[in-house]
Amino acid sequence: MMNMADAKPLAGAGKSPVQKAPRPSRPISPRMVDIAVQVAVVAALAGIWEFGARFGALNPFLLPPLSVVLGRIWEDLIAGTVPVDLGLTLYRALTGFAIGAVIGIPTGILMARSALVRWFFDPLVSIGFPMPKIAFLPIFILWFDIYDTSKIIMVAFSCFFPVVAATCAGCSSLDKWPIWSARSFGAKERELLWEVYLPMAMPQILTGLQVALPTGMITTIVTEMLMGGRGVGGAMIMAGRFADSVGVFAGIVQIIILGFVVVKSLEIVRRRLLIWHPESRK
């Protein structure tokens, strides 16, 4: 009979009973230690903030204690302003990000595969990538008015460049073997795009998305600050105008939490999508 012992131990794939050996009990994994240390660092910083502000190291107007800031967020949460502001900011950031990705990924793939597309987009991307995208805000306001549309387009515009650049780089250095395989099974050029190039470049594309997402968050907040209105950025600018330092810090804490949640979520998506990749089995 065939010897199956040459299978490496792997998660989920082996149904053979050989691999069901009882695991030696390890109470503390390195991953848990990592998380514990990170939580401890955040807690220590929060503690320094709280007690530094409370016991006179700093003027409480310039740096209100963390507990006061959290109390304000809680009040506004109950009053309903925080959910609206956070929701709007999140909506603008994610919609803009999604538009940037949906346009950026195919553009990047086509740039890598077609000289014609590359000739057209390469100079645009080279010029656009290092440029501060926010400089285009006045134009977008002129073109698309001052409401959500211009903000979302601003965000999409800023997300587009890192996605295109990463996708194009990822698709330019593809291993030829899976492509040859697909062609020998009769895949047509157009099918290759979605069936082979896209999944093969997925690690680099996701890296591009992971750069684009925080960029999109920053652009959202800055755009809201510049244009006013509802949203976390707008609320912070209003608080600043009324010399409400607690309100400004409440905005900062909200942005930190929002950014953390969104970035972590994308990491989870990455792990899901790249389940096949050796990087997921470190």
Partner: peptide, 27 residues
């Protein structure tokens, strides 16, 4: 050009790394 009338087993396998064994065969 390559075509499905001439199927090949490559020296380095050339499987689709993002597909499971079964999905590779199903493709």
């Amino acid at each position: 050009a390559p075509g499905p009338d001439r199927s090949i087993v490559f020296q380095n396998f050339a499987l689709f790394p993002w597909k499971t064994v079964k999905d590779n065969v199903l493709y």
